[in-house]
Write a protein that binds this DNA or RNA. Structure first.
Lengths: 340, 340
DNA sequence: CTGTTAGCGCGTTCAT
DNA sequence: ATGAACGCGCTAACAG
């Protein structure tokens, strides 16, 4: 009972393949009688047109590739959710590729995807700023292959395509001002994603806010960590350096960890130290105290990216210029900061 | 600079398509000279064999479909991560489909996937127990189409295929015994997934543990909730009904919420009430107190499922009988329960 | 009304 | 050493 093909059912009725094809599509140029017979037979035997053949014929797969650095990160899951939602509504499937921050894997993945298996690609590149130059080439190859590309979150100027980004500058600016408005003057930043554009922009927003208040920027207050490093130690140094009143943590999970450590050291949050985290996800809502977060609207970003890509796929004729959409963040105020 | 095909490069050298094809595969029956020329030209112009054509030819896509009810659930993300990891190592891509618990969407998705776009399917069905009878048909259709299916987590006897399940009975049994061993005798269960096999099995494990200690089973202690219902009210009724010493919550996020409500009502966790949650994810580690959880090893499940499926895809000849693998859970003991 | 032909892009005999 | 011919499964333009 393997897959039924047009050929087989044509043989069964001793008619031509084309006739069967037309009959199944209810073409008016086939006799009612034959149509009914063929359709019935097809239905009874669960005939399904072979997608692979159709893909080849249509040069389209109704599939879009999504390349993300890490699926265990809630932000990306939210984006993925948004992408899938819109894509599904428009009849597209999603093939998900995870790069685990590996540039090599990303390159391989892109090669795979560039071969015709997808109609378009959405990517948040794993590449850090310093690596981008040599890397952009692989991204650009997609466009050469006529397959539309949309980048989000982590983008680069070296690739010319549609982009959806978060207003990270504004976010850093806004968060800093919130601190200042609630009386926190000595504000530290902890960034687990140091070499990224994102991180840089947020820090610039922070600087701008300070500048406007004519406050000194102290680079010792901006510290990087990575997973391997001891956050405990990092915080020790920071807290002993100065009396910190606010900490801005550029990542949800690190934010939660930071708060836990700060609390363990006997500081009261938010009375002694206020904390604002980035990327509002599941964690921050449920910790104690619940954390004030910068929300990036992951789902919305996903939906937007998806819409733009599908539009690009389907209206390739109209070669309108590439757009870069900036999605505003918002501050979800909870209990890890002093009330306004 | 659209896609380069064999045909085009054949034309360029005024040789036949077959020759080019062979040259690119380094066939010994092509002259060295020509091979070098062709290969160079192909490389320079970024020739990539069209995957769609290859798929059609090979009747294989090196792609597997993954159907899950909800991607915002960390357990499924973990599984997905495991699946992707193994699949990727073996050269397969993943197409992710989210059903949002909708049976209808699941059915549609399966139809789509059954048409040749994937070599195999992994699914955790959205169907609840009561719906399964009419539903199984759609799952079975896959096997008729020769496409291997592996079910995980939420499975059904009505479909004959490989399965990977969590030992939910054992998990319920173990958790209950942990309560009993730490002196909690009145144990309630809160289940947000009432009509599922999973839920039922866990509750049966609970019953068995009680029986062994010759304790009475009180069905009033087992309460269902869903997202719409007011958890607050549910807990009110429960806590007023009897002096509850342990609560088993069959879901991570609900567990966190339950703990938060219990704490807000002035109970001390774990001194007054111990809580064990199910499905160890990101949340439980960071709440206060950190929660004791039943871990389901999502990533491991994903890896296992993936291995089984790919094995089935690649060794279809050996029609070995379907297996059902049971993955043991383990109790991650943290601070929401009394120390042993 | 039905069938023939051609072609999507590629791989594989089998001739030459 | 090279190429013609066929097939994968399907659609579409064109004949009959």
């Amino acid at each position: 009972m393997s897959k039924l093909t047009l050929k087989e059912i044509a043989a069964h009725f001793k008619v031509s393949i084309a006739t069967v094809s037309k009959a199944l599509k209810d073409s008016h140029e086939i006799s009612e009688e034959l149509k009914v017979k063929i359709k019935l037979y097809a239905k009874e035997n669960h005939y399904r047109p072979n997608k692979l053949a159709l893909n080849l014929f249509n040069k389209s797969t109704k599939t879009i590739g999504v390349v993300i650095p890490n699926i265990l990160n809630y932000f990306f899951v939210q984006v993925l959710y948004g992408i899938e939602k819109v894509a599904n509504e428009k009849g597209y499937s999603i093939i998900t590729c995870i790069t685990n921050q590996s540039l090599e894997k990303e390159t391989k993945t892109l090669e795979l995807l560039g071969t015709g298996s997808v109609d378009g690609v959405i990517i948040s590149s794993a590449a850090e700023e310093s690596e981008l130059e040599e890397h952009a080439e692989h991204l650009n190859e997609l466009s050469e292959n006529q397959i539309p590309l949309v980048m989000f979150d982590r983008v680069t100027d070296l690739v010319d395509c549609d982009k959806v980004i978060v207003d990270d500058f504004e976010a850093g600016y806004m968060a800093t001002n919130f601190f200042l408005d609630t009386g926190c003057e000595t504000i530290a930043i902890i960034t687990p994603i140091e070499d990224s554009v994102i991180s840089r922009l947020r820090i610039e927003g922070y600087k701008k806010a300070l500048e406007e208040k004519e406050m000194e920027y102290d680079e010792k207050l901006v510290v990087a960590t990575d997973d391997k490093e001891d956050l405990n130690l990092t915080l020790s140094l920071l807290l002993n350096y100065k009396k910190i009143e606010g900490i801005m943590v550029l990542d949800e999970i690190t934010a939660v960890k930071v708060m836990s450590i700060v609390k363990a050291r006997g500081y009261h949050v938010p009375k002694d130290v206020s904390i604002i985290g980035f990327t509002n996800g599941e964690l921050s809502k449920y910790v104690t105290p619940s954390m004030t977060m910068v929300s990036q609207h992951g789902k919305y970003i996903g939906e937007t990216v998806s819409k733009i890509l599908i539009d690009r796929i389907e209206n390739n004729g109209s070669n309108k210029p590439f757009e870069t959409k900036i999605v505003k963040t918002s501050l979800v105020v909870r209990d890890s900061t002093i009330k306004l």
